[in-house]
């Protein structure tokens, strides 16, 4: 392999520094501003000076973009009141200032349970703010490659974006395997079966299904190249788009009726050599996808 910087192993700010044009990031409400969660202290839980997300402006290939990066090391990237409001503010500012794109480096377990109700409302506010930006013709590009994956409400938010990039080691889903196992037992989902977890939620699966537009290796330069390719990929949603999306999702439901495992589903969807997918790298998986699996 090579020695390229691992996206998964970087912190949120390291990713920003390495992914966007050198020295171009300017942060709004940086840690020195100490805009922090009002809820964690009363639980005796440590707070973060940035509430686990960095937002600001930067340049990508010379183009002005807005940026948000969630820090998975702080509460798993969970969305609380302040964290969510920083994202909403960024999207509202994008609507006003019209950058070339908004790039969201998503790493999150979804709603931050320590802020429960406030976190749930915040995620839905992020979703509406994102869709306002998308429908104004400003592309929202989501990059997923952090160790915590992108789950819960943020898994939904990610699928509301114009363009989604995932690494082969990234994960995108709704409920985590542990939650499903706790709810319906180990027979339903064995959270310790890593191969099963990756086949069900991992980047290769999401790309082969068309849930991600691009699959890349776990390298910051690869994410940068993918984000550069996605600039200009604005796709405001029309009735025809959503009708096409509906047909695609209905076909998938039918194809999935006889598929208990990802390999069977890939075969149903016409992916050749489905059995070999777990052993392939990102470039090889990229070659496998059928044109018909294109996203909405």
């Amino acid at each position: 392999m090579n020695n390229a910087l691992s996206f998964a192993e970087c912190s949120a700010r390291e990713r920003i520094a390495a992914l966007f044009d050198a020295g171009s990031f300017h942060e709004w409400l940086p840690p020195s501003a100490r805009v922090m969660s009002p809820h964690l202290a009363q639980l005796g839980v440590p707070s973060a000076f940035d509430d686990g997300v960095a937002v600001g402006r930067a340049r990508l290939g010379g183009q002005p973009v807005f940026v948000a990066a969630q820090e998975g090391e702080f509460m798993g990237g969970g969305v609380g009141e302040v964290h969510g409001a920083k994202l909403v503010g960024l999207f509202q500012r994008a609507l006003r200032d019209r950058p070339s794109a908004v790039v969201l480096l998503a790493e999150s377990g979804g709603v931050r349970l320590h802020e429960a109700n406030a976190g749930l409302i915040a995620v839905s506010e992020v979703m509406r703010a994102l869709l306002d930006v998308r429908n104004a013709g400003i592309p929202v590009i989501v990059l997923i490659g952090g160790r915590n994956g992108c789950f819960g409400g943020m898994g939904i938010v990610a699928r509301c974006a114009d363009h989604l990039v995932i690494s082969d080691t990234g994960r995108l889903a709704m409920s985590g395997p542990e939650v499903i196992e706790a709810s319906h037992g180990v027979e339903e989902f064995d959270a310790r079966d890593r191969a099963l977890v990756w086949r069900t939620t991992g980047g290769k699966h999401r790309y082969l299904l068309g849930d991600a537009d691009q699959i890349v290796a776990d390298e910051v330069p690869a994410f940068r190249e993918a984000a550069l390719r996605a600039l200009g990929a604005s796709r405001p949603l029309t009735l025809a788009d959503l009708q096409a999306e509906h047909r695609l999702l209905a076909q998938r439901l039918a194809a999935g009726a006889g598929a208990d495992d990802a390999v069977e589903l890939w075969q149903q969807l016409g992916i050749t050599n489905a059995q070999q997918v777990p052993d392939l790298n990102a470039a090889q998986v990229h070659e496998l996808r059928q044109p018909a699996a294109a996203t909405s």
């Binding site: 979703m127 509406r128 869709l131 429908n135 898994g155 939904i156 938010v157 990610a158 699928r159 509301c160 995108l172 889903a173 709704m174 409920s175 395997p177 939650v179 499903i180 709810s183 319906h184 339903e188 989902f189 069900t200 939620t201 699966h205 999401r206 299904l209 849930d211 949603l237 029309t238 009735l239 959503l242 999306e245 509906h246 999702l249 998938r252 439901l253 999935g256 598929a259 208990d260 495992d261 990802a262 589903l265």
Partner: peptide, 30 residues
């Protein structure tokens, strides 16, 4: 709440839910 089943995750329940949200959002815009 959301269905906590492996098969729904396999199919991409987050995409189906995002689709529902996008449809409602489209209705508002229209």
């Amino acid at each position: 709440g959301q269905q906590l089943r492996r098969h729904d995750e396999l199919l991409g329940i987050n995409r189906a839910m995002a689709h529902l949200g996008c449809c409602i959002d489209l209705a508002r815009r229209q």
